[in-house]
Design a protein around this nucleic acid. Sequence first.
DNA 1: CGAACATCCGCGCGC
DNA 2: CGGATGTTCG
Length: 711
Amino acid sequence: MVAGAGSGKTRVLTRRIGHLLATGQAVPSEILAITFTNKAATEMKERVTAAVGPVGQRMWVSTFHSACVRILRRQAHHLGFPSSFSIYDTDDSRRLITNIGKDLDLDPRKYRPRGLAHQISALKNELIDHEAFAPTAQTESQEVLAQVYRLYTERLQRAGAMDFDDLIGNTVAVLSLFDSVAAYYHRLFAHILIDEYQDTNRAQYELVRRMVGDGAEGLDPAELCVVGDSDQSIYAFRGADVRNIEEFEKDFPGAEVVLLEQNYRSTQTILSAANALISHNTGRRDKRLWTDAGDGEQIVGYVADDDRDEAAFVVNEIQRLTSEGLDAGEIAIFYRTHAQSRPLEEVLLRSGLKYRIVGNVRFYERREVRDALAYLRAVSNPEDDVAVTRILNVPKRGLGDRTVEQVAAFAAREQITFEAALRRASETGIGPRAETRIGAFLALLDELRMLLDSGADPEEMVEAVLEQSGLVGELQASNDPQDESRLENLAQLASVAGEFMNDNADGTLADFLERVALVAEADELPDHEGGLVTLMTLHTAKGLEFDAVFLTGLEESVFPHARSLDDPVELQEERRLAYVGVTRARKQLYISRAAMRMQFGTPSSNPPSRFLEELPDSLIHWKRTGRDLSRRVSAGGRGAAPALAQAAGSARRTAGPIVDLTAGDNVLHPKFGLGTVVSTAGEADKAEAHIDFGSEGVKRLLLRYAPVEKL
DNA sequence: CGAACATCCGCGCGC
DNA sequence: CGGATGTTCG
């Protein structure tokens, strides 16, 4: 089914399932439905279950990744993986690649881990493994890539771990290598349905083919139904291939194509804008969205002096809309990159409007949360080297880089895991001091494992890790104000585990870790309730709709993004992204740009986005245009401050006579401001003082160097 | 070894 | 600007 934005694709899919069940063409356990987010999966399942009763729960409705994990937990042993394999996210796999780069003595500038990781991911998306890739390597950098790829694969295997791409790739592998496995799933699924088919990559396409089957075992191939819209394909950067949907009829002969052009979401003004915009892309199947809902309001445009002015405009309009009775939950602000959220957030904070940022620094990507999860992973899978290495010195145990290096070298020499090498620390030639500390660390792991083996549930394990590892203790002891919110995050992790227990009474620790590894940004999105304005990137916005939408940062090199400007293919993807943004709005669309914007900490001015010209002027009411810009552009309202900071910096160098301080003295510090001496210690060159700088906290300063002035 | 500071470099979307 | 990495020194 090829369907335009807002034509009700997901609803069609849900109805089809309902129809299959109602007419007795299928029973729930025969249905596999793939959705774009876990949240969409839950909703679809709930809707169907509401119609057919509890048997609905027996359907498989999930994302590609979740479905693959479910298959692999059962089948991975065929490939030499434990059923409790770890799932490495982007950060984990980057760490692993960084380590490999170090071992190979690669110049990290020339071979950036990030770049290598990306290239490996691209190969995996094409189902090209390191053995297939190596012979094709031509240039030196490709040969390096081949070597890194090989080591990366080996270490993942040895660690009993899979990255996101492996979840798909290994499922394809197990289905193609083992006929009995393939036959099992062919017997299981008679109907396969896939949402957002335009976002599938090569590996996912292969997976679909294998799951559908070719009838070889004497079983009919599963019936396949996909929906999608190539104009909303915005994930080519992670391997999605529009070809999959465009050539669907060729790939699956006998397929029937249904075109949906009527839109049930937006006003005609918004649809006309979207049609005009997307018509600038070449090589597409022409679709023109239409509605019988009427023209509605004009699009409102605004040209701001700078990013803060843009934010002020947005917030002003939101206040006007809410004062007219619109629920703030029906309003969304979109931007191209997360970095653009900051000025918006600042102005929103001052305005008193409640808001929600989706996915800025994601909960599961916070350092302290990842540390705690690494403990759980290490406990659950002793072979998970990335996890064990990560937590060895967290919290600080006096086991630094040098120790890690020596143990890692020993592990490599002996072909054993990092933890096994730790257990043989005495053979590595590190000092007795480090040995004792390693012993304590291992005792901690053993104790946590014992707890797990005695039947502790995930919630209890989280609590045990937080307490016994010392993660919580370290943060409690700290007086860094940031650590308070870190403690809150850890507490939240414990409550996430608690919720998990409510939903999955007999869930294992591995189940919990898997759930946590596969949550997407869009899954964290609360439904439009609670009167919160929603801020998010355009990518996260797909599939959602709001009464009023603000599309911000319409400037060349912001949107379209700088890295797409010289590539016509990428530019077309940027345009599809803009199309997705425009079509999220039901009633009112706002578009804005800033003449000057802070980027990388420095002010920069970018010309208007080409997308603005591609929108028919007759549809837009400009509240302020480029000609209205105030003259103070480039006057340097910001960035004048450094003079003071420099003065303070140069004063620091002059380590003159040591100030004589006693408790109770008032002092002035160029950076921390006014403070009161709490206590002093040491003499002469070693004299130090604890000084309370109020909001800056209590600092321990060495008076020999600290630029404090006694008052 | 690790705190504190200096410097470098980047910010592109994500399962 | 801010996180990651490098350097210095007690």
